[in-house]
Protein backbone atom coordinates (compact mmCIF):
# COMPACT_ATOMS: atom_id res chain seq x y z
CA UNK A 1 0.00 0.00 0.00
CA UNK A 2 2.85 2.32 0.94
CA UNK A 3 4.65 1.44 -2.29
CA UNK A 4 1.65 2.12 -4.47
CA UNK A 5 1.15 5.52 -2.85
CA UNK A 6 4.79 6.28 -3.57
CA UNK A 7 4.30 5.19 -7.17
CA UNK A 8 1.21 7.38 -7.52
CA UNK A 9 3.17 10.34 -6.12
CA UNK A 10 6.06 9.67 -8.52
CA UNK A 11 3.65 9.40 -11.43
CA UNK A 12 1.97 12.71 -10.63
CA UNK A 13 5.25 14.53 -10.06
CA UNK A 14 6.87 13.22 -13.25
CA UNK A 15 3.79 13.97 -15.35
CA UNK A 16 3.61 17.51 -13.93
CA UNK A 17 7.31 18.11 -14.57
CA UNK A 18 6.90 16.88 -18.14
CA UNK A 19 3.93 19.16 -18.78
CA UNK A 20 5.28 22.26 -17.01
CA UNK A 21 8.57 22.10 -18.96
CA UNK A 22 6.69 21.84 -22.24
CA UNK A 23 4.33 24.66 -21.37
CA UNK A 24 7.21 26.96 -20.40
CA UNK A 25 8.95 26.28 -23.72
CA UNK A 26 11.78 24.42 -21.98
CA UNK A 27 11.48 21.38 -24.21
CA UNK A 28 10.92 17.67 -23.76
CA UNK A 29 11.93 16.30 -20.36
CA UNK A 30 13.15 12.82 -21.28
CA UNK A 31 13.75 11.76 -17.68
CA UNK A 32 10.24 12.74 -16.57
CA UNK A 33 8.76 10.98 -19.59
CA UNK A 34 10.59 7.74 -18.81
CA UNK A 35 9.38 7.88 -15.21
CA UNK A 36 5.79 8.39 -16.37
CA UNK A 37 5.99 5.33 -18.62
CA UNK A 38 7.65 3.30 -15.86
CA UNK A 39 4.91 4.17 -13.37
CA UNK A 40 2.12 3.52 -15.88
CA UNK A 41 3.63 0.11 -16.59
CA UNK A 42 3.62 -0.60 -12.86
CA UNK A 43 -0.02 0.48 -12.63
CA UNK A 44 -0.90 -1.87 -15.46
CA UNK A 45 0.36 -4.78 -13.34
CA UNK A 46 -0.99 -3.38 -10.08
CA UNK A 47 -4.54 -2.88 -11.32
CA UNK A 48 -4.73 -5.96 -13.51
CA UNK A 49 -7.95 -7.82 -12.88
CA UNK A 50 -9.58 -4.98 -10.93
CA UNK A 51 -12.29 -2.78 -12.39
CA UNK A 52 -11.36 0.54 -10.72
CA UNK A 53 -8.25 2.68 -10.30
CA UNK A 54 -7.47 5.42 -7.75
CA UNK A 55 -8.90 8.83 -8.60
CA UNK A 56 -5.50 10.60 -8.57
CA UNK A 57 -4.14 8.20 -11.19
CA UNK A 58 -7.34 8.48 -13.23
CA UNK A 59 -7.28 12.31 -13.19
CA UNK A 60 -3.76 12.45 -14.58
CA UNK A 61 -4.46 9.71 -17.12
CA UNK A 62 -7.45 11.67 -18.42
CA UNK A 63 -5.41 14.83 -19.06
CA UNK A 64 -2.04 13.49 -20.15
CA UNK A 65 -2.41 12.63 -23.84
CA UNK A 66 -4.51 15.67 -24.70
CA UNK A 67 -2.04 18.01 -23.03
CA UNK A 68 0.99 16.40 -24.66
CA UNK A 69 -0.61 16.45 -28.09
CA UNK A 70 -1.45 20.15 -27.74
CA UNK A 71 2.07 20.99 -26.57
CA UNK A 72 3.59 19.08 -29.48
CA UNK A 73 1.97 21.70 -31.75
CA UNK A 74 3.89 24.47 -29.98
CA UNK A 75 7.21 22.93 -30.95
CA UNK A 76 8.90 22.40 -34.28
CA UNK A 77 10.76 19.70 -36.17
CA UNK A 78 12.28 16.77 -34.36
CA UNK A 79 11.29 18.06 -30.94
CA UNK A 80 7.63 18.23 -31.96
CA UNK A 81 7.82 14.71 -33.38
CA UNK A 82 9.51 13.48 -30.21
CA UNK A 83 6.71 14.92 -28.05
CA UNK A 84 4.02 13.47 -30.31
CA UNK A 85 5.69 10.06 -30.30
CA UNK A 86 5.93 10.17 -26.51
CA UNK A 87 2.26 11.20 -26.28
CA UNK A 88 1.19 8.29 -28.47
CA UNK A 89 3.32 5.86 -26.49
CA UNK A 90 1.82 7.10 -23.23
CA UNK A 91 -1.66 6.71 -24.73
CA UNK A 92 -0.90 3.08 -25.59
CA UNK A 93 0.32 2.34 -22.05
CA UNK A 94 -2.76 4.07 -20.57
CA UNK A 95 -5.05 2.02 -22.81
CA UNK A 96 -3.32 -1.14 -21.59
CA UNK A 97 -3.87 0.01 -18.00
CA UNK A 98 -7.57 0.39 -18.75
CA UNK A 99 -7.96 -2.98 -20.53
CA UNK A 100 -10.71 -5.21 -19.29
CA UNK A 101 -12.64 -2.02 -18.76
CA UNK A 102 -15.85 -3.91 -18.19
CA UNK A 103 -18.13 -1.64 -20.18
CA UNK A 104 -20.95 -4.12 -19.70
CA UNK A 105 -20.51 -3.85 -15.94
CA UNK A 106 -20.51 -0.08 -16.18
CA UNK A 107 -23.77 -0.12 -18.07
CA UNK A 108 -25.28 -2.24 -15.32
CA UNK A 109 -24.21 0.34 -12.73
CA UNK A 110 -27.12 2.78 -12.33
CA UNK A 111 -24.76 5.73 -12.06
CA UNK A 112 -23.58 5.22 -15.62
CA UNK A 113 -26.38 3.31 -17.37
CA UNK A 114 -27.90 6.26 -19.21
CA UNK A 115 -24.56 7.85 -19.96
CA UNK A 116 -23.23 4.72 -21.68
CA UNK A 117 -26.51 4.26 -23.55
CA UNK A 118 -26.57 7.86 -24.86
CA UNK A 119 -22.96 7.65 -26.00
CA UNK A 120 -23.52 4.35 -27.79
CA UNK A 121 -26.79 5.19 -29.52
CA UNK A 122 -27.05 6.30 -33.13
CA UNK A 123 -23.70 4.90 -34.16
CA UNK A 124 -21.52 5.87 -31.16
CA UNK A 125 -20.99 9.58 -30.49
CA UNK A 126 -17.18 9.59 -30.70
CA UNK A 127 -17.07 7.48 -33.86
CA UNK A 128 -19.24 10.03 -35.63
CA UNK A 129 -16.79 12.73 -34.59
CA UNK A 130 -13.84 10.70 -35.83
CA UNK A 131 -15.39 9.96 -39.18
CA UNK A 132 -16.06 13.61 -39.96
CA UNK A 133 -19.83 13.46 -39.42
CA UNK A 134 -19.51 16.35 -37.04
CA UNK A 135 -20.97 17.07 -33.64
CA UNK A 136 -24.44 15.67 -33.05
CA UNK A 137 -25.64 18.52 -30.86
CA UNK A 138 -28.83 16.82 -29.74
CA UNK A 139 -26.97 13.71 -28.67
CA UNK A 140 -24.32 15.82 -27.03
CA UNK A 141 -26.88 17.64 -24.86
CA UNK A 142 -28.28 14.34 -23.58
CA UNK A 143 -24.78 13.03 -22.90
CA UNK A 144 -23.79 16.28 -21.17
CA UNK A 145 -26.71 16.07 -18.75
CA UNK A 146 -25.90 12.49 -17.87
CA UNK A 147 -22.19 13.18 -17.57
CA UNK A 148 -22.90 15.97 -15.10
CA UNK A 149 -25.08 13.65 -13.08
CA UNK A 150 -22.52 10.82 -13.11
CA UNK A 151 -19.69 13.14 -12.07
CA UNK A 152 -21.73 14.40 -9.12
CA UNK A 153 -22.25 10.83 -8.07
CA UNK A 154 -18.57 9.80 -8.26
CA UNK A 155 -17.33 12.94 -6.55
CA UNK A 156 -16.97 11.19 -3.21
CA UNK A 157 -15.51 7.99 -4.64
CA UNK A 158 -11.84 7.17 -4.05
CA UNK A 159 -11.56 5.05 -7.18
CA UNK A 160 -13.17 5.29 -10.60
CA UNK A 161 -14.25 2.42 -12.86
CA UNK A 162 -11.77 1.90 -15.68
CA UNK A 163 -14.56 2.06 -18.28
CA UNK A 164 -15.64 5.45 -16.95
CA UNK A 165 -12.04 6.73 -17.07
CA UNK A 166 -11.88 5.68 -20.73
CA UNK A 167 -15.03 7.71 -21.43
CA UNK A 168 -13.60 10.77 -19.65
CA UNK A 169 -10.45 10.52 -21.76
CA UNK A 170 -12.58 10.64 -24.92
CA UNK A 171 -14.31 13.79 -23.69
CA UNK A 172 -11.08 15.47 -22.58
CA UNK A 173 -9.56 14.84 -26.01
CA UNK A 174 -12.50 16.31 -27.88
CA UNK A 175 -10.54 19.50 -28.53
CA UNK A 176 -8.11 17.52 -30.65
CA UNK A 177 -10.94 17.03 -33.15
CA UNK A 178 -10.88 20.79 -33.61
CA UNK A 179 -7.56 20.48 -35.48
CA UNK A 180 -8.88 17.58 -37.55
CA UNK A 181 -11.98 19.49 -38.58
CA UNK A 182 -9.96 22.63 -39.34
CA UNK A 183 -7.07 21.04 -41.20
CA UNK A 184 -8.40 17.79 -42.68
CA UNK A 185 -12.14 18.22 -43.09
CA UNK A 186 -11.93 21.99 -43.54
CA UNK A 187 -15.10 22.50 -41.55
CA UNK A 188 -14.36 25.60 -39.54
CA UNK A 189 -17.91 25.98 -38.28
CA UNK A 190 -18.03 22.40 -37.08
CA UNK A 191 -14.61 22.81 -35.50
CA UNK A 192 -15.98 25.80 -33.62
CA UNK A 193 -18.97 23.83 -32.32
CA UNK A 194 -16.73 21.00 -31.21
CA UNK A 195 -14.48 23.41 -29.33
CA UNK A 196 -17.44 24.95 -27.49
CA UNK A 197 -18.71 21.49 -26.58
CA UNK A 198 -15.22 20.56 -25.38
CA UNK A 199 -15.06 23.63 -23.12
CA UNK A 200 -18.35 22.75 -21.47
CA UNK A 201 -17.25 19.20 -20.86
CA UNK A 202 -13.85 20.39 -19.70
CA UNK A 203 -15.49 22.56 -17.04
CA UNK A 204 -17.42 19.54 -15.82
CA UNK A 205 -14.45 17.18 -15.74
CA UNK A 206 -11.68 19.52 -14.71
CA UNK A 207 -12.64 23.00 -13.63
Amino acid sequence: MRDINKHIHNFEESALNLLVDLRMGDGFNEKAYEKVVEMLTLFKMEYKGVSSIPKEVATMMVELYGELYNFSLNYAGEESEQILKAAKNIKIVIEKCLEETGEAELQENQTFTKLVRYINEDGYFFEKLRSGKGLDEQQFEKIYQELESSLKEVHSWDALPKAFVAILINFYEMDLFVYVYQNEFHQEEEADKIYDAYERVFELIAG
Binding site: R23, N70, F71, L73, N74, D175, V178, Y179, Y195, E199, F202, E203, A206, G207
Partner: peptide, 18 residues
Protein backbone atom coordinates in the same frame (compact mmCIF):
# COMPACT_ATOMS: atom_id res chain seq x y z
CA UNK B 1 -17.66 34.94 -19.10
CA UNK B 2 -18.00 31.22 -18.47
CA UNK B 3 -14.27 30.57 -18.75
CA UNK B 4 -12.91 30.17 -15.26
CA UNK B 5 -9.51 31.34 -14.08
CA UNK B 6 -8.36 27.72 -13.89
CA UNK B 7 -9.72 27.11 -17.38
CA UNK B 8 -7.85 30.15 -18.69
CA UNK B 9 -4.59 28.90 -17.17
CA UNK B 10 -5.07 25.33 -18.35
CA UNK B 11 -6.09 26.14 -21.92
CA UNK B 12 -4.25 29.43 -22.40
CA UNK B 13 -1.19 27.67 -23.76
CA UNK B 14 -3.12 25.78 -26.43
CA UNK B 15 -3.24 26.81 -30.05
CA UNK B 16 -7.00 26.46 -30.30
CA UNK B 17 -7.79 28.51 -27.20
CA UNK B 18 -10.43 31.10 -28.00
Amino acid sequence: EHITIAGHVNNGGKKNFK
